[in-house]
Design a protein around this nucleic acid. Structure first.
Length: 268
DNA sequence: ATGGTAGGTACCCTA
């Protein structure tokens, strides 16, 4: 089973690129963030026609929005409201697989970006980001155990490791790589003893990015990237992970998202 | 130190 996450930055605008991605990589499950579409305008018919009849989505006007597109039947679909808001940042599905007795839980997350000032006392967007991560930490611990088959993936908007950014030193004060949010994400990571499925294959001392800003003349030449998109799996899932791929070439597609698709393969 | 670009929306917000 190929499992993919992509911050698509408008699902309606980028339907042609989504189809191109499907043709190129043939994922079984696609988790999207920043769909930026109210549910009544979500392009469900196109997605069903593209081969994903089991599609779960939760969006709103203008901002945020998440979706899980599946080729295979899903047992259950969930919408979770976070930090007392209905801002469409967390949905989940359960998929029954031969590998596990319990259904595999897939959690699609869009963690708030957090604004510009890395101080929760003066920036309520950053406060919201930290509160969101802290709530996820408590929630994961309350609904699962380290032996529950689970995947958490999506745009986490945090690059936790030194080599998840182009310059550790220059980004220590930049929201996405500040110690306070990295510590919060680390606690979330420890909540269920998660495993970072991408860093399993890419050594920690090797640069690894999934996002390049639009505000660069030449993203490839400057290569000021960050690894903001993640795929985490719990311990029982890790032995089934056979490979990964970061589709960096998608940053060069016509009218690209600033994020590129990240995927893992699971033998189930 | 600053501002650079993109998408959705409605004349400005978020990233």
């Amino acid at each position: 089973m190929r499992l993919l996450t992509w911050n698509i930055n408008s699902v309606r605008l980028r339907m042609p690129l989504l189809k191109k991605l499907i043709a190129a990589e043939s994922p079984d499950v696609i988790c999207l963030q920043e769909t930026k579409s109210p549910d009544e305008l979500f392009p469900l018919a196109d997605i069903v026609e593209a081969g994903y009849p089991h599609t779960h989505f939760h969006g709103m006007k203008g901002y945020n929005g998440v979706a899980i597109l599946s080729r295979h039947p899903v047992k259950e679909q969930y919408i979770h409201h976070r930090v007392g808001r209905e801002d469409c940042r967390h949905i989940a599905v359960d998929i029954q697989t031969p590998a596990f007795k319990k259904p595999l839980q897939i959690h699609c997350l869009y963690i708030p970006a957090g604004g510009d000032i890395p101080d929760p006392a003066v920036n309520d967007k950053f406060e919201h980001k930290l509160a969101f991560v802290n709530e996820m930490t408590d929630w994961f611990a309350s609904v699962g155990q380290s032996d529950t088959p689970m995947v958490a993936l999506g745009d986490f908007n945090i690059a936790p490791l030194e080599h998840d950014v182009w310059s550790h030193k220059q980004l220590l004060d930049v929201v996405s790589h500040t110690p306070i949010e990295v510590e919060a994400l680390t606690r979330m990571y420890q909540s269920l003893g998660w495993h970072d499925a991408v860093r399993h294959f890419v050594p920690d001392d090797q640069k690894c990015y999934t996002w390049w800003s639009y505000r660069n003349r030449d993203w490839k030449k400057s290569n000021r990237g960050r690894r903001l998109d993640h795929i985490w799996v719990t311990k029982p899932v890790m032995p089934h992970v056979t490979g990964h791929k970061i589709l960096a070439e998608a940053r060069d597609w016509t009218q690209p998202s600033d994020h590129v698709p990240v995927m893992i393969d699971l033998k189930l």
